[in-house]
Amino acid sequence: MTDFEVPVLSVKNLNKQYGPGCLKCRGGESSSLVKNYCQVCGTVYACRNVSFDVFPGEVLGIVGESGSGKSTLMQCLYFDQEVTSGEAYVSDYENGEKNLFQESSQQQRYIRNHIMGKVYQNPLLGLRMNFSSIGNIAEKLIAAGNNHVGMMESRGTELLNKVHIPVHRRKEAPKNFSGGMQQRVQIAKALSNHPPLLLLDEVTTGLDLSVQASVLDLIKSLQRELGISIVLVSHDLGVIRMLADRTLVMLEGKVIEQGLTDQILEDPQQPYTQQLVHSLL
């Protein structure tokens, strides 16, 4: 046995800025910034030196107010956006020795298709609304190199079963589905190629409470069953409390506090975290 577990995902000093930056804001370090916005050149520093590790089978929660850089961070990790600087390593890709952000766009696409799954807050981004639900799942399977219709159909049906989409509706387009069902199709799609790493961006925001509960339940049981690692972004502390083993708190693009979820929720150290925890109804 090794002394230390190897992280599935390791992110080091990730920076993302929108805008050119100027002498006044000095790469986001200046105190003249309003939150993370430079009033001189209009640059927004969305993520500033974000570093963290995700270990096998772990659920890492990320909380923070809106505009704190949570979603930008997730988009950078899934290569939807280019990072300004920083490194990320995935243990399943090249033994975790290659910085993902330096790889070519073909390689990044390979990583997305083979190693990651992502569920977006808005199903419009994660699904093709005019294609059938099973086709949406097949899209990810085809991208990961499958070329057998029968196999893809049975895998798709199995996954849709798992997320409680009735079998007779599997050939229907997600545009005909309710928000909660669309979200579940997204989860099935993200899980289709057995990704070791799943990125969940505000999956339950906007869903009603009972659907929220069933989606969360589903994620929890799938995570236990398949042993996947999850990075979970939410501004809902209830979701974080239920799912996350460890939690990062982000504010103005920076990680201001991190630790075990219980620790963060029971004994917050930073003023912002304290305020956040105490405003929990």
Binding site: F131, I134, G135, V149, K171
Partner: peptide
């Protein structure tokens, strides 16, 4: 995928 949809 477009061919898969036709098969479905």
């Amino acid at each position: 995928l477009m061919l898969f949809e036709q098969i479905m």
